[in-house]
Each structure stands twice: as structure tokens, then as C-alpha cells.
Design a protein around this nucleic acid. Sequence first.
RNA 1: GGCCCCUUCGUCUAGCGGUUAGGAUCCAUGGUUUUCAUCCAUGUUACAGGAGUUCAAUUCUCCUAGGGGUCACCA
Length: 461
Amino acid sequence: MITTRFAPSPTGYLHIGGLRTALFSYLWAKHNSGKFVLRIEDTDRSRNNEDATKAIIEAFKWVGLEHDGEITYQSKRDEIYKKYIDRLLQEGRAYRCYMSKDELDAMREAQTQAKERPRYDGRYRDFDGIPPEGIEPVIRIKAPTSGTITVDDGIKGKIEFNVDDILDDFIIARSDGTPTYNFVVAIDDALMGINSVIRGDDHLSNTPKQIVVYEALGFALPKFYHVPMIHNENGKKLSKRDGATDVMMYKEMGYLPEALLNFLVRLGWSHGDQEIFSFDEMLALFNPKDINKSASIYNTEKLDWLNAHYIKNSSNDTLAKLLEDYDLLLSSHDKREILLDAIKDRSKTLVDMASQIKEILDTPDSYDEKAVKKAFKGEAKDILKDFKQKIESSQELHLPSDYHHMLERVVDEREIGFGKIGQPLRVALVGKMGGPGIDTIMSVIGKDETVARIDNILATV
RNA sequence: GGCCCCUUCGUCUAGCGGUUAGGAUCCAUGGUUUUCAUCCAUGUUACAGGAGUUCAAUUCUCCUAGGGGUCACCA
């Protein structure tokens, strides 16, 4: 059984990069009929924030990722960590260090000056004298002093770290007794049965430290998968300043969750040439071994295309329901199907879709100058009047095809091209060029509104 | 700076010693469309550089360059 986790620190909204690692973790767990759990890393109380946890859960809900079991909060596990710290202390695998922060800083400064790697010198490692007064010690773990630590990464392969150039006896508990990150991560992952750790490769250099903890405590190592970063257009780690990185912003902008997930799953992962993945397909096909080794640049062009694709392939019921979140109520509209069928092929986002629909439903309050100039040449007004009279005297006008026949009659009788009536009529109906077929528009708004809009433009132009 | 990772079209990627280096997106052109969009077709564009190994390197090894990540009593 595979158990994976997503372990954000609650400092803000759910980041798009976080969602991708969460998705990868979820897919790999569920692909193996395993568990995907959520752990909130809130050991730093000063930076902790409850709203952030809610925001993460809300975003998970929107995209349809569900975690198994209860959420684990590190802030509630102090006892557990304390127990392991005491154990390490007793076993002599960890020790108290009475060096003050100032002393430490000074030492680091000197080391940097001397072009040495800043590191703790281990001065209290074997200390058994009388501790200095007035100093609350930190607890340091006895890390190996020589040799190598190998991370067998599921994405990057075997990576060897030379202990001498990366390790020192790092702090596992602060002077106030609270445990530090690399320590609690290892403990929690081990205790929660996480056997596949999928996370950003910015954690790669932490991994040796965590391995030291695993080994000191005698825990079995999980399989690590370090997923390459997502970069911004400048090739740097994607951060909050790079525009839309909040997952919920994508909802606001009118993206469908399935489009966003499809987009994210293809960022760094692939399955041959396949671009479109339903959630079930992701589940069936995802494997971290197919994750790329290199970082990818975040560019939403393809997201727009995917979103348009998913809109096109959504049922009208689904769309109508979704559009309610964008201030568009269509449930009572008798031509809903015709309308949605016409608009969904031409929308990139739900926001876009809602505004296109409003452009049809709402009587135009102004006319695009260029369009008017182009359409109202020669006998355009006459033609419009003619058409108006024809539909006014007609009883059976419902479907687009009904209106289409009326258009054809005018075109035939007057021996003109379709454009001669199409263009002025289009401007009358929506105030500008572009949009779905005019017969469709007329069918949707109905005969009375069509007549009214023609009257309007005849009076203004 | 030390350590680690990475490098195929602008972007996302396929490739796992022998390919006209494929797909998608974007862009351009043409067709369809009364318009716009969709859709369809076509097209431009890539193996960072240099050494090796090999009959043969995009593919394996090394070096260089470039990019990124990380070096806390943050997570």
C-alpha cells in the first residue's frame, strides 16, 4: 500500500505549484489504491494562520481532491516530538548545546570570512562539564561526520552527498523546546506511514538531514520523489508576485477544475503524446517515474486551450449551473439549449462565456461605430425594414431555422447577398460584428425583442 | 561562494544507440462560416557547446557554459 501526503505550511492560499505536488501525490496514492493524507505544518506559531488552512481545504474541494482521514496538525503533536527528543538524548544520539545565538552568529561570520562553509563546530557534542549559567540550550543531533549519504530519488536517480560538505550537528529543538522542521517532518512521515514522499525539489537538500533523523530513530526510509520546480517567465521559482498563483483565482477567472488539473498534470509529467486526461485517466496512467527531471516554465496558453476544450465538452446543464457563479441565471430561459450550444464553442473561460451570453440577452445600449459604418451602406435600412415587416407578420417563429427562412426570403426577393442583410441586422441585434449566427440570436431573444432592436437601430442610425 | 539538480521547437513535451527528431500549444496561411469563434488542412521553429566511447550518438561518459535550488533556534 502506498501512502502519500501533502504537507503545506499554512502561510497563505494554496499555490498552483502546491496543487500540482498535491495532485501528483494524490494520483500516485490512489493509483495504488492507497491513502493520501493532509498534514498542516504549523510548528511556527508566529507565521501560522488558520484562514490559510481553510483556504487550502476550500481549494482542494473546488478541484475535487479529497484527503483521507483526519488532518494532522503538527502544532498538536508536541508531546510526540518531545518523546523522541528525550529518547535521542538518553541514547546519546543528541545533546544539549549551550552556545548562544550571538556566539553562533559570530562563528558563522568568521567562517564565511575565511571562505569556509558556515557550520556548527560540535563543541558541545561530547561536553560533560558544568553548563554555563543563564543559557537555555538547544538540542542538536549527532550527525555523521564522514562518509556519504545517498538519496535514491524516484525521479532524479541516485544522488550522493558528501557528509563533510553538507552536514553538521543541526538543531532538532530550539531553546524554547519546540522542535524544528527537519526533525518533525521525518518523525511525522514515519509515524503516519508515509512511504512515498512526493515534494518539490527545493527539498532535495534537506533530505540528507531527514535521513539522519530517520536513521537515528530507526525508522524505515520512504521512497523520495523530488518534483522539479515550476518557474515563472523569468526562469525563477514561481512566487506570489507572479500574477495568478492562487488556485482559487482560477475559479474566479472562469477556469474549470478539470482543465486546471489537466494542465497541471501535464506540467512536468507526460504519457506519450496524450494531452487530454480525464481524472480517471490520470488515475490510471500516472506514475512518478514519468515525471520530467527539469523545471518547467509556467505559461497559461495551453490552459486556455484546455479550458475551451472542457467547456465545449461540458453538458449544458453543467454549464448553466456553473454560470450561476458568474451572475448568470439561465434556468428559466426557454431557449437555453440553443443559446449554450451556440456559445460554448466560442468561449475560453466561463467569464468569457457569461459576458458573451449577456451581450446577446441584453439589448445593446450603443453601437460600434466602425460596424455601423461598414454595415449601413446603400439600402441597408430598407432591407432591415423589409425584414422587420416580414417577421412581424409571421406567426411561427421559434427555431433558428425559422428565422433563417425569413432571411432567405429577403435575400431571394431582393436578389442580394447574405451579407447585405446579415451585417446591418447583426449590428442591430448585438451592436457590433462578431458572435454567433444571427438566426440563433433572434431565436434566443424572440420575435418581439428582435423587432424592438431593429426599431432601435433604425431610429438611431 | 560550497553542495545539489537541470539543459530537445517561444512554451509544455515524446524520444530511452540507427527516426525525414514526433505531438500539443502559440504564431502564420488557406478552407468552412453572412461576421467572429469553433472546426479542418498546411507551414515556420529545437537536440547549449566541446571532447571522448561506438560502425553509428539527441540518446552513454567526461569537461565547459548557462539556468535553477539550497545552505537558519523558517517551513
